[in-house]
Write a protein that binds this DNA or RNA. Structure first.
Length: 888
RNA sequence: GCCGAAGUGGUGGAAUUGGUAGACACGCUAGACUUAGGAUCUAGUACCGCGAGGUGUGGAAGUUCAAGUCUUCUCUUCGGUACCA
């Protein structure tokens, strides 16, 4: 006897235990089956899971279960992106160790994920903070070092003088240290860089070879890589000495060369110091450079700084026309882009124009756009970047500017003063972090030998766990002699020092999906055969916030492994789904500030604070975040509704790529739907059970089992019109659900389709007195409703499946429903009739009627007759079996 | 500034080789069953209008027998990026 409603508490834990005990989701390589590697972005173990995780992993789990039912050998792993700064902060705040905090969080979150019923192969769990994981990252670092894929150079970090520590960009608030409020400075340090720019072109080209990725993501990556073609041009520096010196610039507009009137160098450009030395500008330049170096460089604060510069006290010569160009150093010139020097053409570049106006520099027009009055430097109020015809450009005057780009560049090339080149916005990847909770960089610094890699046999270099975090947030590693002091592996010097920096945590997440293929492999980074079988990932699912960095770094890492001959592919993720954020309105009390949803009482669109009773301002619907308190705790949902209802709502409320607006009433609706199905199943079970004795053996009854079988034959085998309609509807539903999942993961419409079928079943009477046909068709329907829903609400489906008498085991072993083409179409069709495009009438016809019949029926229609009376029919358009439009 | 996406009932959202706009759900209204119901079931629900009918997919124009869907312009919102030479 069934309970009268679905009881998640009882049912869900039971099936979770069953799945675990029977290793239902264990994956292993099997050449006889098609593989499907389904991956969701692994979480940072920050404490407990939030709704974003719930949504992401629910989407993934449904796909995993769906693919299994479709016969795929599915790899669906989960793990932890376990290194990172929050652990350090928590450790300082709570006086614990980052490891303790991290492992505690992992354990909490793991039990939460298990409670959601996700079908992971937990035997493949990976935590990146474990030495058996990061040792292979260190190994790879050494391999990359051998191949010159990684190098050291000086680079700036955010530095807090008060705390004596490095700050990450997110720890800089308003140019100040988040911990103490001191102004943040820029400090130069030697740091490690991956040569990702070596792959810039390849990464770019393959953006167009990823048809399974959302276009917006590849577009963002393309913009991030930022390829621009142009020319490199050398400008001779005017000196008294005989030695010839040049400034190299990169420009995308060599056609404007004749209009270049001054030069701007990045403050860090080596020529800035050498050229100003000994001139009367020397001190002014030094002061300027010093000032810029103290400015914060994060993108958010850049726009606050006005464009400014200082004359360095030297000139260079424009190779095109011999003009003397003053050399400036300017804050907008970036050392990291191009050559760190800009030829400034104020007439045709807005930034240069502003600069020239400010410092009263010459403006020379060299491009005259067609259909525009003659440009005059005296009266121009803005630069003119448009294309046109060259003027004031010697023999190039009169030439179209696009043609001139090529012509001028090849002339320069002949003179040895320039060439065509390409520049990328993408920079090399700086991976050194002056942090504790990360992968130690496996190199040793020796005064005799320089930088020496740790020998492979000494790996892993484990992060010392008996370290105490410093209160100022700095890394304790440089203070730990037992870690830092070591022997040079090359010369044996005993005063060698270990690198005390750790790697950017994006490094771990750039290859974890490869490790999942053979997570316990202890003799190499991965088992080649396992990787060959599983990789690349067939479907990757995660937040769009990782559209650039994580995904680009992962693509880069696969190229590194490919170059090193470790793998034979380049792209890690064949298909990508970026799911939208989980949103909720904010609530703000004038007295208590932001409120959690449970701290406000909402009725009729008005809210009041439960603490003070004041009116609460209901704000915009925005991404759930702790700071705005517009959050829903998954634990509360699990306690109240269980996993399946939570999963169902996440999928039903909107398509995965869009935002999901959280709404408690919507969850309640899902709960109702599940119980509707539950009762329907109960009805079907009762109905057929009571029939056994009364019914004679016929085509619908299995005489051996003495029980009803679902009808699965052709539509034409049914006589009852209700049974026919329902049966067709069932097949249409199977098709719709399959298409919606297969094509676009649009679970919301798939669920709607099932709801329609359920509604259709409720609309006919089902009881012991129903006809055999109805009973048999109903049984078919309910069986497929459960199968179609099983990836979405797996516990519920297992329970009902068992109650329906399927003793053979888990529904996860069942095949996905298939539909009969011959059962999709009913013999009646609805035709709508329009007059001048406006809907006037509709009628049903036999499915086999031809256009002529439909047309005459339309014209004969009573309502239509009334409308066309006394009017001239100009034209009648018949759309096959669908519509008639009469033009009068 | 540049790039991209999206604007549809009271709400979340359906519908695009151009062919019934509003599936499904929430909310709301009425009714039934009940000692009671925030349980369940039935009916209704884009807007205006008593009605016939008219109007409706951010706004304006256009193509078409027919436009949420195609074209042009425009407004708003969201996301990415931002001194890239």
């Amino acid at each position: 006897m069934m309970d009268d409603r679905y009881n998640p508490e009882k049912v869900e834990s039971r099936w979770q235990e069953y799945w675990e005990k029977n290793h239902i989701f264990r994956a292993s390589e099997d050449d006889s089956k098609k593989k499907y590697y389904l991956l969701e972005m692994f979480p940072y173990p920050s404490g407990k899971i939030h709704m974003g995780h719930v949504r992401n992993y629910t989407i993934g789990d449904v796909v995993a279960r769906y693919k299994r039912m479709n016969g795929y050998n599915v790899l669906h792993p989960m793990g932890w992106d376990a290194f990172g700064m929050p652990a350090e902060n928590a450790a300082i705040d709570n006086k614990t160790h980052p490891a303790t905090w991290t492992y505690q969080n992992i354990s909490t979150m793991k039990s939460q994920l298990k409670r959601m019923g996700f079908s992971y192969d937990w035997e493949r769990e990976v935590a990146t903070c474990k030495p058996d994981y990061y040792r292979w990252e260190q190994w790879l670092f050494i391999k990359m070092l051998e191949k010159d894929m990684v190098y050291r150079k000086e680079s700036y970090v955010n530095w807090c003088e008060h705390c004596q520590t490095v700050l990450a960009n997110e720890q800089v608030e308003d140019d100040s240290c988040w911990r103490c409020g001191e102004m943040v400075q820029q400090k130069k340090l030697f740091q490690w860089f991956f040569r990702i720019t070596d792959y810039a072109e390849d990464l770019l080209i393959y953006c167009d070879k990823l048809p399974g990725w959302p276009e917006k993501v590849t577009l963002m990556q393309k913009n991030w890589i930022g390829k621009s073609t142009g020319s490199e041009i050398s400008f001779k520096i005017e000196t008294k000495s005989s030695k010839e010196e040049y400034i190299k610039v990169f420009t995308t507009r060599p056609d404007t060369l004749f209009g270049a009137t001054f030069m701007c160098l990045a403050p860090e450009h080596p020529l800035v110091e050498s050229l100003s030395k000994g001139t009367e500008q020397e001190s002014a330049v030094a002061a300027f450079v010093d000032k810029i170096s103290k400015q914060e460089r994060s993108s958010s604060s850049i726009e606050k700084y006005e464009k400014e510069g200082v004359f360095v006290g030297a000139w260079c010569i424009n190779p095109a026309n011999g003009r003397r160009m003053p050399i400036y150093t300017a804050n907008f010139a970036l050392m990291e882009y191009g050559t760190g020097a800009v030829m400034s053409v104020p007439a045709h570049d807005q930034r240069d124009f502003d600069f020239a106006k400010k410092y009263n520099l010459d403006i020379v027009v060299v491009i005259q756009p067609k259909d525009r009055e003659t440009l005059d430097p005296e009266t121009m109020t803005a630069a003119c970047p448009d294309s046109g015809v060259l003027v004031n450009s010697d023999k190039y005057s009169g030439m179209d500017n696009f043609e001139a780009m090529d012509k001028i560049t090849s002339w320069l090339e002949k003179e040895g003063l320039g060439k065509k080149t390409i520049s990328f916005r993408l920079r090399d990847w700086g991976i050194s972090r002056q942090r504790y909770w990360g992968t130690p960089i496996p190199v040793i610094h020796c005064e005799s030998c320089g930088v020496v890699p740790v020998s492979e046999s000494d790996l892993p270099i484990t992060l010392p766990e008996d370290a105490h975090l410093l209160d100022n947030g700095g890394s304790p590693l440089p203070t730990l002699d037992f870690f830092k002091k070591t022997v040079c592996p090359k010369c044996g010097r005993t005063d060698a020092k270990r690198d005390t920096d750790t790697m950017d945590t994006f490094v771990e997440s750039s290859w974890y999906f490869v490790r999942y293929c053979s997570p316990h492999f202890s003799t190499a980074m991965f088992d080649k055969d396992a990787v060959k079988y599983w990789m690349p990932v067939d479907q990757y699912i995660g937040g769009v916030e990782h559209a650039i960095l994580h995904l680009l770094y992962s693509r880069y890492f696969m190229r590194v492994l490919n170059t090193l001959g470790l793998i034979d592919f380049k792209e890690p993720f064949t298909n990508l789904l970026t799911q939208g954020m989980v949103l909720k309105e904010t609530l703000k009390c004038p007295e208590h500030g932001y409120l959690f949803p449970e701290e406000a009482k909402i009725s009729d669109g008005k809210a009041s604070c439960t603490k003070c009773g004041k009116d609460v301002e209901i704000g915009r619907v925005i991404k759930m975040s702790k700071s705005k308190k517009n959050v829903i705790d998954p634990n509360d949902l699990l306690n109240k509704y269980g996993a399946d209802i939570t999963r169902l709502f996440c999928l039903f409320a909107s398509p995965p790529e869009k935002g999901l607006e959280w709404n408690d009433d919507g969850v309640e609706g899902c709960y109702r739907f599940i119980n509707r199905v539950w009762r329907l199943a109960a009805t079907c079970i009762e109905m057929t059970k009571n029939s056994i004795e009364a019914i004679n053996v016929d085509k619908n009854v299995d005489s051996n089992r003495k029980t009803f079988l679902p009808y699965s034959g052709p539509l034409s085998g049914l006589l009852d019109s209700d049974a026919k309609k329902l049966y067709a509807k069932a097949h249409q539903t199977i098709k719709k659900v399959t298409d919606d999942i297969e094509g676009s993961f649009h679970f919301n419409t798939a669920i709607s389709a099932v709801m329609e079928l359920v509604n259709a079943m409720y609309s006919i009477e089902l009881n012991a007195n129903s006809s055999d046909e109805i009973k048999s068709v109903a049984l078919f329907c309910i069986e497929h409703i459960i199968l179609l829903l099983s990836p979405i609400v797996p516990h519920f489906a297992e329970e009902v499946w068992e109650l329906m008498g399927n003793k053979s085991g888990s529904i996860t072993k069942q095949s996905w429903s298939s539909y009969r083409e011959d059962a999709l179409v009913t013999d009646e069709l609805l035709v709508v009739v329009q007059i001048n495009g406006k809907l006037r009438s509709k009628f049903s016809i036999d499915a086999n009627s031809n256009d002529e019949v439909i047309k005459s029926m339309a014209l004969a229609d009573e309502i239509i007759q009334k409308h066309i009376e006394g009017k001239e029919i100009k034209k009648v358009i018949v759309v096959k079996k669908k519509l008639v439009n009469i033009v009068v």
